[in-house]
Amino acid sequence: MYSSVTAPVDVLLVEDDPADTLLMQEALATRPGRHRLHVVRDGVEAMDFLLCGGSYSSAPRPALILLDLNLPHMDGYAVLAELKADEHLRSIPVIVLTSSKAETDVVRSYASHASAYITKPVESERFTEIMRKIDTFYLSVVKLPRAG
């Protein structure tokens, strides 16, 4: 049986490419009211958001994280390591969204406890389709842990 989310879910997007960010925002905008998308551009900002540091003192705990691996200042692997080492944050599902097709990146991401690994497609229509599938799966099928 499928359960659907009744209240909007906070989703954290960690992405430094403005074009990819825009594609994700547009794809998710077709499903209004299901989520609140928060965007940070690097790993340091992501950890500030997750730990409510700096300008993110009132940031919500996201129910889902979409994480690029190739980030400035602190890469996605470092974010995954810190996130999964924190007992209050480790239960948040993390979907790695990256341009890398390298098997070593896939293996390393799963070894770092990523929930899923998706290679970003080049075609915008396929990218939108993937974002909609993530939205449907994580907001209609999967039971996410409560904030806290």
Results as ranks from 00 to 15, higher is better:
Thr6Arg: 14
Lys133Ala: 14
Leu71Ala: 10
Arg132Glu: 14
Phe137Pro: 00
Gly54Pro: 09
Asn70Arg: 12
Ile134Lys: 01
Glu45Trp: 00
Arg132Ser: 13
Asp10Arg: 00
Gln25Met: 14
Tyr110Phe: 15
Glu45Ala: 13
Ala147Lys: 05
Asp42Gly: 06
Ala85Leu: 03
Ile130Glu: 13
Thr119Ser: 12
Ala114Pro: 12
Val40Asn: 07
Met1Tyr: 06
Val14Tyr: 02
Gly148Leu: 09
Ala116Thr: 09
Ala114Ser: 14
Tyr56Trp: 15
Glu129Trp: 08
Val11Thr: 08
Asp48Lys: 05
Ser112Pro: 05
Thr98Val: 09
Ser115Arg: 06
Glu125Gln: 13
Ser58Arg: 11
Val39Gly: 00
Met1Cys: 00
Ile130Met: 14
Asp48Leu: 12
Ser99Val: 10
Thr6Trp: 02
Ser58Glu: 14
Glu103Trp: 04
Pro145His: 07
Leu83Tyr: 00
Val39Arg: 03
Asp86Gly: 00
Val106Tyr: 15
Ala147Met: 02
Asp75Asn: 14
Arg132Ala: 15
Ile65Arg: 03
Leu66Lys: 02
Thr136Gln: 08
His88Leu: 07
Pro32Met: 10
Leu66Tyr: 01
Gly54Glu: 11
Gly76Met: 06
Val9Cys: 10
Tyr110Gly: 12
Leu139Glu: 04
Leu139Val: 08
Arg126Thr: 14
Leu51Tyr: 09
Cys52Trp: 00
Asp10Trp: 06
Val40Thr: 04
Met74Cys: 12
Leu69Arg: 01
Leu97His: 11
Leu97Asn: 07
Arg126Gln: 15
Ala59Trp: 04
Ala147Pro: 03
Arg108Gln: 15
Thr30Ile: 14
Asp20Met: 08
Pro8Gln: 08
Tyr110Glu: 11
Asp105Arg: 03
Tyr138Arg: 04
Ile92Asn: 00
Ser55Leu: 09
Val79Gln: 03
Val94Asp: 07
Val142Arg: 06
Glu129Ala: 14
Ile118Thr: 09
Glu87Arg: 09
Ser91Tyr: 04
Ile92Gly: 03
Asp135Leu: 11
Val141Phe: 10
Tyr77Val: 01
Ser91Glu: 10
Ala27Trp: 02
Pro60Gly: 12
Thr136Tyr: 13
Glu123Ala: 13
Ala147Arg: 07
Ala7Tyr: 11
Thr21His: 00
Val141Ala: 10
Arg90Ile: 01
Met47Val: 06
Ala7Gln: 15
His113Gln: 12
Val5His: 05
Leu69His: 05
Leu50Thr: 01
Ser57Val: 08
Leu83Ser: 02
Arg34Ile: 09
Thr30Trp: 07
His73Arg: 13
Ala111Ile: 00
Ser112Arg: 08
Val106Cys: 08
Ser140Gln: 12
Arg34Asp: 06
Phe127Tyr: 15
Met24Asn: 05
Ser124His: 14
Leu144Ile: 01
Ser112Ile: 03
Phe137Ser: 02
Val122Pro: 04
Tyr77Cys: 05
Ala116Gly: 11
Val142Asp: 01
Arg41Val: 03
Val39Ile: 11
Arg61Ser: 06
Leu144Pro: 01
Arg132Phe: 05
Lys120Trp: 06
Ile65Pro: 06
Ser115Ala: 15
Thr104Ala: 15
Thr98Ala: 04
Ser99Tyr: 02
Leu71Pro: 09
Glu87His: 04
Cys52Asp: 02
